[in-house]
Design a protein around this nucleic acid. Structure first.
Lengths: 207, 207
DNA sequence: TTGTTGTTAAACATTATTGTCTAACAATTT
DNA sequence: AAATTGTTAGACAATAATGTTTAACAACAA
């Protein structure tokens, strides 16, 4: 069906990813995953034993990629304003590539403590590295009087929430405004990305 | 069980609300709802026929209350800055009372087109009323040069997303920072609410 | 009191969903 | 070529979840 040299295992993983991201753990059905993958549903059990184990693989992979998207920014050593812009745009673009990821992750995290624990466990080794460098620069700029006082946590949450919101609103916007072409969507997203960056700069910068 | 003069129907509705908000449509199980309500599970079918119908009632009620929380603000006729502050604080407080509502609504909206249609249908008669007054004032202030140019849509999305984000992050924060007392949570929320208002004002106001 | 209506629980039926087992057979090794 | 290992589909089993029917009985009306 969608078999292009991929192993059956990989085909199932891909199908499962789609299904879980679309529907969430509880609403996703293993038969639907198998059908989507174009294999008999026993294959799913053969390779992954249980729905639970299959889910864990997908979830872990997604969380890892989410974390990675933050780490990448760190490699650069730009001035504060550029750093924030890069951070914001990279994060926005990352979510744009996986628009269903935020709701999926929120959901599974809120519903299931062990998922929460997994996220915390995976995040722990990176969190101080990710935040450390930004924090230093932020506090420098605040001391210099260039930036209004704000805690790192609040700033990051502001950025993250601004960046995610369009992707939650988009399906509704599409329905309401009768949007179907990819061009129109891209235009909306580009506008929103720029709005976010400007909004954050205006809020942060003293001048 | 939790029967305090409430009718069985109401008891079931309350239990269903809890269950659906906790788990979402697919993960919520009718037997769990019945158990939570302290009634036999056939009662659920007696009063509501199907899980689907029961869900629709809850969902409709929640959407209605969500819409109402926006409408209320409109009654007041304050100057722009006050209006925005009132809008933001009222909205934040509303979500604080129902912290699971945003994710629940997003989820069901994204997953199910007919839920999306219902929201649009319920929202339609109010949307122009809600936005109209704010838009007038916003554009006035922009023309006067008090406020940086921004579209109403973007402003509303910014406010909404900032206000909602803590409630998504809270369960994780609780786990990470070992927060259990209500006092601590309230402190975090109050700080966040103030951060949001200040952040928006800083971004908006020219001075 | 008798009948009518509304409420309830329990047993049952149906369907959906997950998970297991077997047999076929292809690929690889000996 | 025989044996071993890995892959697959299909039938089947077990369980979970939803939905239906029946019978009991309480409240109320005739």
């Amino acid at each position: 069906m969608e078999n292009n040299d991929l192993t059956t295992e990989q085909v199932i993983l891909n199908a499962a990813e789609e299904e879980f991201l679309d529907k969430g753990y509880g609403n996703a059905k293993t038969v639907a995953i198998a059908k989507r993958a174009g294999v008999s549903h026993s294959m799913l059990h053969y390779y992954f034993r249980t729905k639970e184990k299959l889910f864990q693989m997908i979830f872990e992979k997604k969380i890892a990629s989410l974390i990675q998207s933050f780490v990448v920014i760190l490699d650069k050593d730009a001035p504060f304003e550029q750093m924030i812009r890069q951070l914001m745009e990279a994060q926005f673009n990352f979510v744009a590539k996986q628009p269903r990821l935020p709701i999926f992750v929120f959901n599974e995290i809120l519903q299931n403590k062990s998922n929460r624990d997994l996220v915390i466990e995976l995040l722990a080794p990176h969190i101080s590295v990710i935040l450390g460098k930004i924090e230093t620069k932020l506090n420098e700029e605040i001391e210099k009087g260039n930036v209004r006082p704000i805690s790192l946590i609040n700033l990051m949450m502001n950025i993250l929430s601004l960046n995610i919101s369009v992707f939650i609103a988009l399906p509704v916007l599409k329905d309401v405004m009768n949007i179907n072409s990819k061009k129109e969507v891209e235009k909306i997203l580009a506008e929103r990305r720029e709005n976010n960056v400007r909004f954050v700069f205006n809020a942060l910068m003293i001048r």
